[in-house]
Design a protein around this nucleic acid. Sequence first.
DNA 1: CAGTGGTCTAGACCACTTG
DNA 2: AAGTGGTCTAGACCACTGC
Lengths: 256, 256
Amino acid sequence: MAAVLGYRELAERLREAVLEGVHPLGAKLPSENEISARFGVSRSTVRRAFALLTEEGVIASHQGARRTVLAAPREQNFGELRSFSRWARLIGEVPSSRTVGLERGTASEVEAEAEKLGLAVGDPVFRLTRVRLLSGRPVMIERTSYVERVGVLLSAVDLDRESICDALEKFGIFFEHAEHTIEAVQADAVDARLLETAAGTALLRERRRTTDPSGQPLEWSDDRYLGDAMAFTVRNSVASAPLSRSTRSIRPTRAN
Amino acid sequence: MAAVLGYRELAERLREAVLEGVHPLGAKLPSENEISARFGVSRSTVRRAFALLTEEGVIASHQGARRTVLAAPREQNFGELRSFSRWARLIGEVPSSRTVGLERGTASEVEAEAEKLGLAVGDPVFRLTRVRLLSGRPVMIERTSYVERVGVLLSAVDLDRESICDALEKFGIFFEHAEHTIEAVQADAVDARLLETAAGTALLRERRRTTDPSGQPLEWSDDRYLGDAMAFTVRNSVASAPLSRSTRSIRPTRAN
DNA sequence: CAGTGGTCTAGACCACTTG
DNA sequence: AAGTGGTCTAGACCACTGC
C-alpha cells in the first residue's frame, strides 16, 4: 500500500491538532492503532511521528499508557539559532551589524582556538569581530574564527548587509552541527565600549564550535550578549539529555 | 530469530568502539548491512542504535554516504543535571548544602510562579532556599518552589545531608522532563551575601520547570551560579534543535 | 551504477498500565 | 484481561553519494 502521508507530515498534523486545542495540555492522545487506521499509515510511521514530537518535548511516552501532551509545540530550528539575522526577523526586530574588524591570522593556543578548529598552531585562520544590533540597539558582540576555506569567502560578503549564514550557503558551506557552551562573564573595557554599557555588566557568553555535515570544523566563536537582552532555552528529559553541566576554567584563559 | 542484542546494547558497543579508537574522529563507520550481519541483528535494530548515537551528537548521518564520527561519546544523563549532589560527586568534588529557609506559602504571580506550577494564584506551595557548596566553597543559590504534594514530603528529608532527588524517588516522585532558561544576571545584595562575593558579580541564572512523567509540574526553580564556576553545554544539529534563543523581559519581574 | 542511508509496510511477541 | 506502547524481524522501494 502506498503511503498517503509521511511521518513528518503526520507529525505536523499532530502538532497542529495540539495547537488548535484538539488535544489540550495533559490530555491523553489516541493510541497508535487508532491513528494508523485514521490516517491510513502503518503503526511504524505513527511511532516515527510520535518520536519526533517526543524529541521536541511536546509529548511524553510511557509503556502501557497512552501518550500525554506535555507542552505546546514551538517553532524552532537550527537556522534561527545559527543566524542572528534570521532569529531577529523571526521575533519582529530589525537586525543589523557593525563590523569591527576582519583580519587574517594564524591559529593560536589561546582559548584552544587551534584545537577547536581542528588545526595545527600556526595554520591560517580568519577572525571577524562584529557588533550585532536589534533595531539599532547593540545587544551582542560576535568574535568568530573561521577556517581558511570559509574565511576566504568572507571577502565576497557584504558583512554589514547580508547574513553570513545565507551567503555561505550559496558557496556550498553548510553549518550542520554545533556544540554550545554557555557561561556568565563580566564585560571588560572593550566589551563595555562596543555594547555601550558599563564595564562589569553581566554578559551571557556563548562559545560555539560549528561543523559541516561530515564533522569538519568551520568556525569557533565567542559571542557575548547583553545580560538583560537574551536567554537560551533547552528542553530535556530522562530519555534524552542534550544539555550538560560543567565546571569552568579547565584551562587558564588569556585575555583577548 | 531471537535477538542476541538489543539496540541499546548495540549502541553501547559502538560507543565503546569509538572511545577505544576503533573509529577515530572523522572516520567512516561500517554500513548498516555490515553491522547487522556482524552482530546478528536486523537492519532496523542497527538503525535504532545509530539513531541514539546521532541524538547524542556522536555521529553524523547523510543519505547515500556512510555515517561519520563527529565527537567522542560523553557520559551525561538527566540525573546528573537534575541533582547537584550527583553531578558534584561525578566530577570528584564534595557537594554540601546550607539551608537558608523552607516555608509554606501561596502561589503568586511573581515570576509567573503559579502559572509555571500549573496552579491558581493562592494555592499552597513550599519554598526552599539553599546555598550549594563544592568542597566547602559556595557556588550556587537554589530557590525552588514545590507543589504541595512534593513539598509536604520535604519535612521528612534531611536537607543538608541527603540528595532531595534521591529522597523523593523513594516516595515515588520522579523528575522526568525539564525546561531550562539560561540567562546572565548581576548578583544583588542578597545573592552576594549568600555566595560570599561582591554585589554586581556576573551570575549564570538557570530557571527550571520540572514535571513528572505525565507532565504534571513538580517544581519551579531559580538557580544562580557563580559566573566563574559553571557552564552549560548543549550539542545540536540541523536535524534536532533542543536549544532555542529568546529575548528576556517578556513580562516585568519584581525583585525577590 | 553499485552501495548506502531514508522511508514504509506487515506482523510478531513482550512488558506494562488500567479498569 | 484487554489495551497500549516497546522491541524486533524481513522485505520492499526510493533518493542520494561516490567511484
